[in-house]
Amino acid sequence: NKFNKELQWATWEILNLPNLNEEQVKAFIDSLRDDPSQSANLLAEAKKLNDAQA
């Protein structure tokens, strides 16, 4: 389904953001699992944090 694909994509993207530490990655992945419908928003937040920590 749509959420499953978005969840998989967001998870992959977050795992590959180079500037997030392990705790941050875990927190984003946990949030994705808690509410897959928020995957686009969570991915945007993760990318923003990744850029800020570059």
Rank of each mutant, 00 (worst) to 15 (best):
N1D: 15
K2G: 15
K2W: 15
F3S: 14
F3L: 12
F3H: 15
F3W: 05
F3Y: 07
F3E: 14
N4V: 07
N4S: 05
N4R: 03
K5N: 10
K5V: 06
K5A: 07
E6L: 14
E6P: 04
E6Q: 06
E6I: 14
L7D: 05
L7S: 04
Q8V: 08
Q8R: 07
W9Y: 11
W9I: 12
W9E: 09
A10M: 07
A10W: 06
A10F: 14
T11K: 06
T11L: 14
W12Y: 07
W12L: 04
I14E: 01
L15H: 07
L15K: 11
L15W: 07
L15D: 03
L15N: 06
N16S: 10
N16Y: 04
L17I: 01
L17G: 00
L17K: 01
L17E: 00
P18Q: 10
P18V: 07
P18M: 13
P18Y: 11
N19S: 07
L20H: 00
N21S: 04
N21T: 12
E22L: 11
E22P: 11
E23M: 11
E23F: 13
E23P: 07
E23I: 12
E23L: 09
Q24H: 03
Q24L: 03
K26H: 10
K26P: 00
A27K: 11
F28M: 04
F28N: 00
F28E: 00
I29P: 00
I29Q: 03
I29D: 00
D30T: 15
S31Q: 12
S31H: 07
S31R: 14
L32M: 12
L32F: 03
R33M: 14
R33L: 14
R33D: 04
R33N: 15
R33Q: 12
R33F: 15
D34N: 13
D34Y: 13
D34H: 12
D35G: 04
P36D: 02
P36E: 03
S37A: 08
Q38N: 10
Q38H: 06
A40F: 14
N41S: 11
L42T: 08
L43T: 05
L43F: 06
A44R: 11
A44Y: 11
A44V: 10
A44F: 13
A44W: 13
E45T: 12
E45F: 14
E45P: 00
A46G: 02
A46W: 02
K47A: 04
K47H: 09
K47E: 03
K48W: 09
K48L: 09
K48Y: 11
L49N: 02
N50F: 01
N50I: 01
D51F: 13
A52G: 07
Q53G: 05
Q53V: 08
A54S: 12
